[in-house]
Simulated scan of single mutants.
Amino acid sequence: MLLEKVKQILRESDSQRKASGENFNIFFAANIWRKETTICRVLKEIIDVRGSNPVANICLKLFCGEVLQIDVDKEAVEKAVIVREKQIKNNRRIDLFLNIDNKAIPIEVKIYAEDQAEQCADYYEYAVNSPLYYLTLDCHEPSPESKRALTDEQIICISFRDHILFWLDKCLDNSDVKRIISVSTILKQLRAVIVYMTSQEGDKDIMDISNEICLSRENYRAAKAIEISLITVRIQMMKKVFGELSKHMEALRGKGLNCEQILTYETKKLVEPYYEQRKNTLPCIDYVFEEGKYTFRFEIWDNFYFGICKWNDEAKWNAEITADEQSLFKKGKYWQDNNDGSSQSWYWWKYCFNKERQCNFRSCDGEYEKLFDENGFKEKMEELFSVVDECLAKIGLINP
């Protein structure tokens, strides 16, 4: 009964938002809501006292206090310099770089992109009297490969879900900000995007659902059980996806696939801590080939991707790839031109789904929700298998 009532509340809310025009949002209309570069540009313009926002000084002071947890005075705010995509060594770029009150503050923004090797460690070198701030949807930590030896004092995890939403609410509560309609409208639309990205419902929805839960002890117990069960549900879904993938890959042995299957996500117990401890444990399945030299790996960071890594048989994990090895690999038969990236850990990697149809296993929203419908699950798996089979045939691991 409680679930049915909640579904009814959400259906009515969706209808009301559409009728009121609340769903008319430039971020969604232009399909730029999930792009890190766009979000960073907007954040920078909101807090840049040298930019176009006439109340940037108010927004910046609130940003320092509510997001970065530092206290700055009016004079420091007026002299602040905000840089977007500050270029550093190795042609890397820090998403947001704030110079204020004798501090140099690097902020790395991760919405759907994956970490790069030593990325956070490199960025921290440019911090002065400040930690590196790592801004994600849900406050998860960076990968060990990116973080390296950084301590908890040197890198602070912040989130859109908590810190940025709370900051935006503080800005929208300010009378001087409210008075500038163009600014307050953008802040409201950005807030709506973040609510959507972090799988939260609107304030009224939450209140209506809360009131329904408070009607009885039975409703409260049901809601509490659902809350506890969600992590288990997500663990089960990740394992279900890996299970279907494993079945499909085993069926490809009839097409010549000759790889040792290692269910790494099980042998190293990588799924449970991914959700229970919010660790980036990199749950994966490996298909080791060419006498243990390489692995064709399927891995989850936030999104799902696959590619070829150098295999370390002793550690049952991928080994670091040197520049010479990468150069040589590009000339070989296993190179895939149509890829989405490479790193010290990957000769190449490629998303399992179209970039606009990613299943994000961290935020668990959007396309991910389709996995809980029978037809939706089948559709996503068929999309994955199609991409994988085409790639395997191109590099000669299966027959066309």
Rank of each mutant, 00 (worst) to 15 (best):
residue 3 L to C: 05
residue 4 E to I: 10
residue 10 L to G: 04
residue 12 E to G: 01
residue 16 Q to D: 13
residue 27 F to W: 04
residue 30 A to D: 09
residue 37 T to C: 02
residue 42 V to K: 10
residue 45 E to S: 10
residue 45 E to G: 02
residue 47 I to N: 12
residue 58 I to P: 10
residue 64 C to H: 03
residue 78 E to S: 15
residue 79 K to M: 05
residue 87 Q to W: 09
residue 89 K to L: 15
residue 91 N to P: 09
residue 115 D to R: 09
residue 117 A to W: 12
residue 123 Y to H: 05
residue 130 S to M: 05
residue 132 L to G: 13
residue 135 L to F: 09
residue 136 T to F: 08
residue 142 P to C: 09
residue 142 P to W: 03
residue 143 S to M: 11
residue 144 P to C: 12
residue 148 R to E: 14
residue 153 E to T: 07
residue 154 Q to W: 07
residue 154 Q to V: 05
residue 156 I to F: 01
residue 158 I to W: 01
residue 159 S to W: 02
residue 164 I to L: 14
residue 170 K to C: 14
residue 172 L to V: 08
residue 176 D to A: 12
residue 179 R to T: 01
residue 179 R to I: 11
residue 180 I to F: 05
residue 182 S to I: 04
residue 183 V to I: 11
residue 185 T to Q: 10
residue 199 S to H: 14
residue 206 I to P: 02
residue 210 S to W: 05
residue 210 S to N: 11
residue 215 L to W: 02
residue 216 S to M: 04
residue 225 A to D: 10
residue 235 I to M: 15
residue 238 M to N: 02
residue 240 K to G: 06
residue 247 K to D: 13
residue 253 R to C: 07
residue 257 L to T: 03
residue 269 K to D: 14
residue 280 N to V: 09
residue 283 P to W: 14
residue 283 P to H: 04
residue 283 P to D: 04
residue 284 C to G: 07
residue 286 D to W: 02
residue 287 Y to L: 00
residue 296 F to I: 00
residue 297 R to F: 03
residue 298 F to G: 03
residue 308 I to T: 02
residue 311 W to K: 00
residue 314 E to I: 05
residue 319 A to E: 13
residue 327 S to G: 04
residue 336 Q to S: 11
residue 336 Q to D: 01
residue 339 N to T: 06
residue 342 S to A: 15
residue 363 S to H: 08
residue 363 S to D: 13
residue 366 G to M: 15
residue 367 E to M: 14
residue 367 E to S: 12
residue 369 E to R: 15
residue 385 F to K: 13
residue 386 S to L: 04
residue 398 I to T: 09
